[in-house]
Simulated scan of single mutants.
Amino acid sequence: MDRFRRLLCATDFSEHAGIATRRAATVAATLGAELQLLHVLSEPALRTLVALFPGSADAEIRLSEDARRMIEAEAGRLREAIDGVAVTTRLGNGDPDDEILAATESADLLVLGAHGQNPLRDMVIGSTAERLLRKATRPVLVSRAAPEPPYRRALVPVDFTGHSAGAMRAAAAIAPDAELTALHVFELPFEGKLWLAGVSDDEVNRFRALARAQALKRVLELAAGLGEAGSRIRPQVVQGSAARSILEAAEEIDADLIVMGRHGKSAAEAFFIGSVTRHVLSDATCDVLIMPA
């Protein structure tokens, strides 16, 4: 994803959704993109309401009118607060998952608010946000920090799979003026067995240095493939646990955005959020942009 021209932000009018709509508007204004706000009136919830209050035949109409007023008011606040942002609104009626996913097909980016301090810890498995993260075929920006215009420091973890270059391009596109750090985390294969086999400290350190140098070379090659945007990328290679190292690096550089792939390397993770991505989403204090497979 080299360009984000059409942004979709799903809102339920909560405080967390308000953070997401503000971030979406900030990104849209920065990129000269269009932003559409979407609110879905849940059809199952409406049926429940009618069943509970059978005498309120016009309840659905009133709820729809209220939602229309609220979404237009939100769009107005964004236009007033952020110069040059182009905002349209849309009301859906039906299953929230289906409506949001269908709308996302005509967008380049879906923006969601993170509920609570830990977006995935606080999600019940099978919740709307969890399912959207799994099923969306477009990048998903999970916004959790109070938006400061615009992104200043972005961290891009790379694992040298086919998705790494795309994540770097996406970071350069969504944060055109930010400092970009491309991070690779490595583990020395069989390091524990090397110690048990009596391999000397000097030899183990030599293996580490070789692995680090090879990884650094590959990160630089990825950056070079981005052309002019590659000149903004600072390579970083560390040894350790992937998730923990990503979170530590984000804190170290005071990142306001992490850009990473949705899936891990395992085929078993093909339908789920990869374990490293899940961990980062759970504990990151900044926004996280998840790229689809």
Rank of each mutant, 00 (worst) to 15 (best):
V111M: 03
L112W: 03
L112S: 04
L112M: 12
G113Q: 07
G113I: 09
G113V: 09
H115P: 00
H115L: 06
G116D: 10
G116I: 11
Q117M: 12
Q117Y: 09
Q117K: 12
Q117P: 01
N118V: 05
N118T: 14
P119S: 06
L120I: 13
L120E: 04
M123P: 00
M123A: 15
V124M: 12
V124T: 15
G126P: 01
G126I: 10
G126H: 08
T128P: 01
A129W: 03
A129K: 06
A129Q: 11
L132N: 05
L133M: 12
R134Q: 13
K135V: 12
K135W: 06
K135T: 13
A136N: 08
A136L: 11
T137F: 02
R138N: 07
P139H: 04
P139N: 06
P139W: 01
L141R: 00
L141T: 03
V142H: 02
V142I: 14
V142L: 14
S143V: 11
R144M: 04
R144G: 02
R144T: 01
A145H: 11
A146Y: 11
P147N: 00
E148Q: 14
P150Q: 10
P150W: 09
P150K: 06
P150Y: 07
P150S: 13
P150F: 10
R152W: 09
A154D: 03
A154V: 10
L155W: 03
L155T: 01
L155E: 00
V156T: 03
V156A: 05
P157V: 05
V158H: 02
D159C: 06
F160I: 08
F160R: 10
T161K: 13
T161A: 15
T161E: 13
G162Y: 08
G162L: 11
H163T: 14
S164W: 03
S164F: 01
S164V: 01
A165T: 02
G166E: 09
G166M: 08
A167T: 10
M168N: 02
M168L: 13
R169T: 02
A173D: 05
A175E: 01
A175Y: 04
P176E: 03
D177C: 10
D177E: 15
D177H: 14
A178T: 07
A178V: 07
E179H: 07
E179D: 07
E179S: 07
T181C: 12
A182E: 07
L183P: 01
L183D: 01
L183H: 02
V185C: 04
F186P: 02
F186E: 03
L188W: 05
F190Q: 15
F190N: 14
F190A: 15
F190R: 12
E191W: 02
G192I: 09
K193I: 13
K193H: 14
K193F: 14
K193G: 12
K193T: 14
L194Y: 06
L194H: 04
W195F: 15
W195P: 06
W195R: 15
L196I: 11
L196G: 13
L196Q: 15
A197L: 09
A197V: 08
G198N: 00
G198D: 00
V199I: 13
V199L: 07
S200H: 05
D202V: 12
E203P: 01
V204N: 07
V204W: 08
V204H: 07
V204L: 11
